[in-house]
Amino acid sequence: MQLPRKNHVHAWLLLMPAAILLIAFTHYPTVTTVVKSLFSKGTAIRPSQFTGLDNYRMMIEDPVFWKVLGNNLWFALGTIPTSIALAIVMALFVNRALPGRSLVRMAYFTPTILPMIAVANIWLFFYTPDIGLIDQILTAVGISGRNWLGDPATVLPAIMVMTIWKEAGFFMIFYLAAMQNIPPELKEAARLEGAGRWTYFFRVMFPLLMPTTLFVFINAVLNSFKLVDHLFVLTKGGPDNASNLLLYYIFETAFSYFETHYAAALTVVLLVLLAAMALGQFFILDKRVHYR
C-alpha cells in the first residue's frame, strides 16, 4: 500500500526532532571519530595527515592499551555478577513487610543518588591508609593497615567494591519494581504445592525476573565501560595503570596528551566492543527471557 505524499511529509516532520538530535549528537560524531582515527596527530606546526591504520597499529603495540582493556574485563567480571546478586538480595529484603521499610529502601538507594565524584571522595577517605575507616576498623581487630589504593594488587578490587556499593542500590530499584509486578498468587500457589522459599525463588521468581536481569545486565556491562568518574578522584588510573580503565585512558589520551587521533582510534575500539556486546545480548539472551 502506498501512503499519500502528504503522510510522508507528516511522518518526516514528526521524526525530525529526534532524528536531528540523534544525527547531530550520535551519528555524526561517530562517523567523524572513525574518520579521525585514520589521521595522525596534528598541531599548528605540523598538520595532521592521513595515515590509514597507523593509529590501530600503534594500539596493538601499546602495552597500556592492553593493560586497561584487561583491567576493564576484570572490572566487569568483578562488579556485574556481584552487584546483580546483591541487588536481588536487597530487593528481596525490602520487598517484605518490615518496620521502616521505606527507610531501608531509601538507605539502599542513597548511594545511587549521590554523584559519583562525591562517592569517590567519601571512599577515598575510607581507603586511606591509617586514618581511613577501613583501616581503623581493621586496626581495631588487630590487622595492620593496608594501602588499598596504593597497592596494584588491591587497587582494582577496592574500586570494584565501591562500584558494587554504588550500583547495587540502583539495580535494586528495578528488581523491586519487577518483584512487585509478580502476582502474589504465584507465591501462594507455590506454597500450597509445597515449594519452600528457595524453590519458589529459583523455580518461579528468578525466571520471572529474567527480563529485568537482562536489562540490568546490559546496563551493568555498559556502566562498567562507561563509569570512570571515580578514577579522577580515587587513583587517576594508578598506581602504574593498575586501576586504569579504557574510557579513562581515552580521556587521558585526548585531553592530557592531546593525541585526539589516537584517542579517536581507542574510541572506535570501545564503540565496537560495546555494540558487539549489546547486539549479542539482545539477540542471544533476549529469546530466552520474555514470556509474555
Binding site: L124, P129, D130, I131, G145, N147, G150
Partner: peptide
C-alpha cells in the same frame, strides 16, 4: 608506607 601515597588525603594524614 610502601606502595603509593595519595596526594589528596595526605594533608589529612
Amino acid at each position: 608506607p610502601s606502595g603509593t601515597i595519595e596526594w589528596g588525603t595526605l594533608r589529612q594524614n
